[in-house]
Nucleic acid binder design. Structure first.
Lengths: 142, 142
DNA sequence: CGTAACCATTAGTAGAGCTAATTAAGGGGT
DNA sequence: ACCCCTTAATTAGCTCTACTAATGGTTACG
């Protein structure tokens, strides 16, 4: 395509905007009582479903020993279960509990509400244009 | 405005997309040789200019003692300077060095390039629509 | 001036990251 | 059937990153 020099600018600004957006929303996480790594690991389990330790570590971009301890603390907090995987007794199957799901969803709602409050100030046409941009971004990330 | 139930969906999807985007780009940071907290603090200094310790801690959402040690390690690495603030000798003025700027820019380029590679696959009209969405997002974050 | 408020750092502890080593279970090959 | 090699998770031991509480200097002000 021809407009590549524009894409570079779009990429730069999208990158920077994503950083600022999440930095802003992260302030709400204090209310959850969980640290960022725990919250993030729990989030992966809730949205992706049960995973092995290696899969969860890979998704979170940490090494297995790190995730092993993180999971241990989540188990102690009752937010996650860890059991021997069916079919391979070396492996473990880690899953969010109902309480873990509830806690995560409450936190996610707090974050999203902050964003909604800002989006509500947009004009109708701007809201539609932003929604279309999000559609395209989702395809880019697939 | 009337389309608020749509905005809630847009907010949810934007939130989730931003998380996945940064998670993807973060893989490139390994090549910088700096930890995430150091890279992030350096980034604030490069883009916002020189700051006091308290300002930098606040921007990074950590307590002053944490930032004090983080800055110490960046000073030792030659990426940042720390000197007594002119006009108030209690305060320090922390600034990125030329080397810090170069290192950060190289890392940012690696991240953005990954994104560019994906955006280049978009059709011309999609690229324009995404750019428009980024414009609107930037205004939302102001 | 002298005291209160402020800025940064030091002290001490817990959490989160790493590599290396260990334990346990699968999966062959002969 | 057995030995060996690989794989999955954990444990051990280290560093870095986070917190609160306490300390050392500076500034501001009554």
């Amino acid at each position: 395509m021809t407009g590549d020099h524009r894409m570079e600018e779009t990429a730069t600004r999208l990158h920077s905007a994503a950083i600022r957006l999440l930095r802003m929303l992260r302030r709400q996480d204090e209310a959850s009582g969980l640290s960022a790594p725990r919250l993030s690991a729990l989030s992966v389990l809730v949205f992706a479903g049960p995973l092995s330790l290696a899969e969860l570590a890979s998704a979170e971009q940490v090494r297995p020993p790190t995730m092993s301890r993180l999971v241990e603390s989540l188990v102690e907090a009752g937010l996650v279960t860890r059991e021997v995987a069916p079919g391979d007794r070396r492996s473990v199957r880690i899953a969010a509990t109902e309480e873990g799901r509830r806690l995560l969803e409450a936190g996610r709602q707090r974050r999203v509400q902050v964003l909604i409050n800002r989006l509500e100030k947009l004009a109708e046409s701007e809201g539609r244009a932003l929604a279309r941009g999000v559609d395209i971004l989702e395809r880019v990330l697939r």
